[in-house]
Design a protein around this nucleic acid. Sequence first.
DNA 1: GTTGTATTTCCATACGTCTAGAATAATGGA
DNA 2: TCCATTATTCTAGACGTATGGAAATACAAC
Lengths: 122, 122
Amino acid sequence: MEIQQAIIIFDALSQETRLRAFRLLVAAGPEGLPAGAISEQLSTPHNTMSFHLNHLFNAGIVTSRKVGRSVIYAANFDEMRELIGFMVKDCCSQDMATIREDAVSGCSIIELTGCCSDKTQK
Amino acid sequence: MEIQQAIIIFDALSQETRLRAFRLLVAAGPEGLPAGAISEQLSTPHNTMSFHLNHLFNAGIVTSRKVGRSVIYAANFDEMRELIGFMVKDCCSQDMATIREDAVSGCSIIELTGCCSDKTQK
DNA sequence: GTTGTATTTCCATACGTCTAGAATAATGGA
DNA sequence: TCCATTATTCTAGACGTATGGAAATACAAC
């Protein structure tokens, strides 16, 4: 992931309404939620929420699709995984975090090593 | 990690000068770098960089200590690990990312599973 | 004390973001 | 067609952020 893309995603997630909306979509899973349900659950006016959902969409961390009158938003898990990979590779010490690809399982395996082991469990 | 703290860190990292400064500090390791070296390497005026370093400090992702006339900033790796943990737990699907604590090694082990395996290697 | 170096604080300006009322667009049902 | 529903776009105001020149602070060396 490019640093510019990481900045755009950090910016998208650095606002409470947007981060809460995104976590709601994460909890909702791949099926996603209609815009109205999100604004209702977060007690935010429709137009304000629309502004924030558009922000998340432009950042690439949610997708949207029209179903009848509704617009269904869903979290983009691939992009989120890439962001986590960026943070581990570029924003964490190699002594304290490593990431490797496991070709067999198709997984990225990250190990976060505590320098002060008792703080790791927080 | 609380959602409020995550927002503060995302905000701190959502600005190019700050993200570059932070990555410089990550590369520098626990020893850190003096403020002047950071502003020089990023070709940013001292006062502007001081503003951004203070922002990173307030967010808790860098530490600072005075040594003679210099102020040495260093990345706070513990806080960064916590943020990665927050993202995996709260911002990623359980189907696609799991985190578990390994008591023996004191490591947090994260597995990022690709839903579309060929995208995982990007 | 004076000078030079390292960094922060003060300040004004320019620019960007958040909010929500009102209007608009798109769709489905009676 | 007419109405209700769902969501977005338009707009203006309030507020927050980034920038860098100038001044102030802190420290070390002479």
